[in-house]
Amino acid sequence: MNIFRFAGDMTHLISIVVLLLKIYATKSCSGISLKTQELYVIVFLARYLDLFTDFISVYNTVMKLVFIGSSLAIVWCMRMHRAVKRTYDKELDTFRHYFLVLGSFVLALLLHEKFTFQEIFWAFSIYLEAVAILPQLVMLQRSGNVDNLTGQYVFFLGAYRAFYILNWIYRFFTEPHFSRWIACLSGLVQTAFYADFFYYYFISWKNNAKLQLPA
């Protein structure tokens, strides 16, 4: 474990806490893409298949349970909670995310470390996570004005993988046989998707203005 990876995990955790706060405090999920949240459930379930078979550390197991539990809770809330599901902007959340699942799975069948069930599902989860934010970013552009909590949620979500890139660079130089080319390349693509959001987020922060994404 290094400081970059720990900062990345904490930033990821903060993004989830901010989203849960928004949904429970405002009893609203307006501006949040249910499709992106559903993709994250698939990402965590596909990546943590070894949750019960291999033990790495208490931290690792606890964080996996938190990520799986929170992503399921958010999807449940947006689909089943009476007050919250009424605020879901279904007509703005129109990205055909099934293609992202299909494309990621096909890519995992072609590009993986080893052709085993766990490695293919792990690569699938890595590719899917890279594109999982797309429905949310498209929805933000459609909905124009972004409320603070939603903006902070997307910001922390983008920042966490940027910390992971620093973690991979650090491990590359400190560990002899370290190679995570799948996670690294995918992480670069994932963080690149946030580039324009980060730009407009920085502008809104600098001008102390509302976050506005160009339609």
Binding site: R5, D50, I56, E119
Partner: peptide, 10 residues
């Protein structure tokens, strides 16, 4: 065990 060894990241 080999799978998880190099999958120590979340």
């Amino acid at each position: 065990q080999s799978f998880s060894l190099n999958k120590d990241e979340l």
